[in-house]
Each structure stands twice: as C-alpha cells, then as structure tokens.
Amino acid sequence: MTQKMAITLDVNGTGHEIRVEPRKTLCDALRADCGLTGTNVGCEHGVCGACTVLMDGVPVRSCLMFAVQAQGKALRTVEGLSTGGKLHALQQAFTDNHALQCGFCTSGFLMLAAGTLEQQPDIDDESLREVLSSNLCRCTGYQNILRAVRQVRDAGKAGAR
C-alpha cells in the first residue's frame, strides 16, 4: 500500500477534500470519498460506460482515470443535473420515453448525453447513434434512449438546467 495523497476534487461546483491512494479510480473516489453514489461502477475496465462523468465539459470514463489525475478539473456527475428539485430536460425525457428500466446505466447515459448535447447541440442522428453506442444498456434496447436524447436535442433544451 502506498501513501495516501491529500487532493481536492471539484464536483458539481463543490470542493471535496479527500485522501486517496494513487491507485483509487475517479469513480471509486466519487462514490466512497465524496459520497456521490449516483455514478455507478460497472465493468471497471472502460467497456460499459456506467461510470461516465463530465470532466471540463466532456464525457469520460471515470473508471479509466485515477482520482489524483482529476485535481484542478471541473467534474460533473448526475447529482449536478437537476436544480432546485426540478429534473434536467434529459432526466425528464428519459422518464417520459421509458428510456430506463433497471436504471443502472442511466447516470452514465445521462452524462454522456448531457456532455454531447452541450458540445454539439445540433448533432445529427447518425452521429448521435455513434455517440450513444459508447455505453451499454441491457434493458431498453437503446431505441427509447435515442428517442429521449433526440427529443431534448430537438427542443433545444440541452442547456436548460
């Protein structure tokens, strides 16, 4: 066991002062040290995308980074999507379109979609399919997830918080 390091993670605009071993992944630190358990951990080797978070505005796999590497970065997790008890447009659209069943993949899909629509608000259908192929869902068959994200894109609400 190597020495723990004192680091600060900026998550959803709040600083979290934590002590972690360098080998601790960002997703484990978010859950165990920051207490933010909305980010799920699936495969732990970058295949499933359940742990997707935003780092400086772009979606990344939080299991493929060590927490110490995320110092000084602006992190956003699913806990940061809703504001004042009001769901983010994507969360509402996932609900309305039955884009989740068991929900394990949902926080990853929401952050993937949120980051993508913020970067590319006018993304075309083919590119959106390519982006959403990044994450695995074993319940929905993907069509309802696509429908939900397209609905938000079409409504131009990606920036609405």
Binding site: G46, T52, P59, V60, R61, L64, L112, S133, S134, N135
Partner: peptide, 8 residues
C-alpha cells in the same frame, strides 16, 4: 473505440 474514450 468510443466517443468518451477518444476524449482521453
């Protein structure tokens, strides 16, 4: 790979 992998 995939979009999030390509960001990193």
């Amino acid at each position: 790979a995939h979009y999030p992998i390509r960001q990193r």
